[in-house]
Design a protein around this nucleic acid. Structure first.
Length: 287
DNA sequence: ACTTCGACCTGTTGGC
DNA sequence: TGCCAACAGGTCGAAG
């Protein structure tokens, strides 16, 4: 479910309700997420006030005076205050005002960690690449993610451009959906080695990445299956997707059939005609 | 150092 | 209708 626009949508949604609120209780029904939830989390959080909700890449940071809660939603996680989640509500953060923040994650790929030092220096966060878009709650990161940055980082890299931009140590926040969409918008073949892409193409690609992510946030994220934001409402960006989920259908631009392949174990959709520069490697596994 | 691949889980979908 | 395999928005860490 969550790519960066979804995470940012959730961040905005919960920030309005939980900042300034005092934790009264923490109910943990299942400690086994990607990494175990710290056993002593309730005693760390009870009677503490959330002072801010920030974001670094797809990691949400709930800031307290005595530390920071680092939350990742993995593939299927969500956080919400209203709406009745039935199964898979692994953790409830109960506030003194009676509201409850639910952490729900069917596949348990997410995580909830606690740190009492600078969260940006946490093992999982310290080597992340720059933020693709500045927004409220996001951190200003250096160097800036722009055409020059991606071009310089990609020299002599042989891996496909799609895997390159999805690597959070290169740039954070670009998941499978938006990688497909950005490469289509920039007319770049997803299989093309990252090192063979020109500076001007990286400038174009950067522009589309930023536009698409901002656009998706404005739409409240993309609902592919069951994504709901913190208000229990779906995102509406799905109707804007040009290639993701449209394999073997006609291309929006030219009408040719969109091709669906497997790249880095992820479903990849592109238009062989519109996305033909630079020349891609010989052939790919057609699905 | 760089790139690919397996693993972590449950739920949904599509083919037979 | 039922069963089973394949696949799903992420990403770390091991293997090559």
């Amino acid at each position: 479910m969550p790519e960066l626009p979804e995470v940012e949508t959730i961040r905005c949604g919960i920030a309005n309700t939980v900042v300034g609120e005092v934790i009264k209780n923490v109910v943990i029904r299942n400690f086994k997420l990607r990494w175990p939830i710290p056993k002593n989390l309730p005693q760390k959080l009870i009677n503490q006030t959330i002072t801010a909700v920030n974001r670094r890449g797809k990691y949400l940071l709930l800031i307290f005076n005595n530390g920071t809660l680092i939350i990742h939603l993995g593939m299927s996680g969500s956080l919400y205050v209203v709406g009745a989640g039935l199964k898979h509500n692994h953790v409830d953060f109960v506030f003194e005002n009676g509201k409850i923040l639910h952490f729900n994650d069917p596949r348990k790929f997410g995580c909830i960690l606690w740190t009492e030092t600078d969260p940006l220096q946490h093992k999982l966060l310290k080597d992340l690449g720059p933020e693709p878009i500045g927004c409220r709650g996001g951190f200003e990161t250096r160097p800036y993610m722009n055409g020059e940055y991606l071009y310089n980082k990609s020299r002599n890299k042989t891996r496909p451009i799609k895997s390159f931009i999805m690597d959070s140590h290169i740039v954070v926040g670009i998941g499978n959906i938006y990688a497909n969409e950005a490469l289509f918008a920039a007319k770049i073949n997803p299989q093309c080695p990252a090192g063979e892409i020109s500076l001007s193409q990286y400038k174009t690609l950067t522009m589309h990445i930023k536009n698409i992510l901002k656009h998706a946030i404005a739409y409240g994220g993309t609902t592919v299956r069951d994504f709901i934001n913190s208000d229990g409402k779906p995102g509406y960006f799905k109707q804007e997707l040009k290639v993701y989920g449209h394999g073997n259908q006609p291309c929006f631009n030219c009408g040719n059939k969109l091709r669906e392949i497997r790249l880095g174990q992820r479903t990849t959709v592109y238009c062989p005609k519109c996305q033909s520069t630079p020349a891609p490697p010989p052939d790919a596994q057609i699905r």
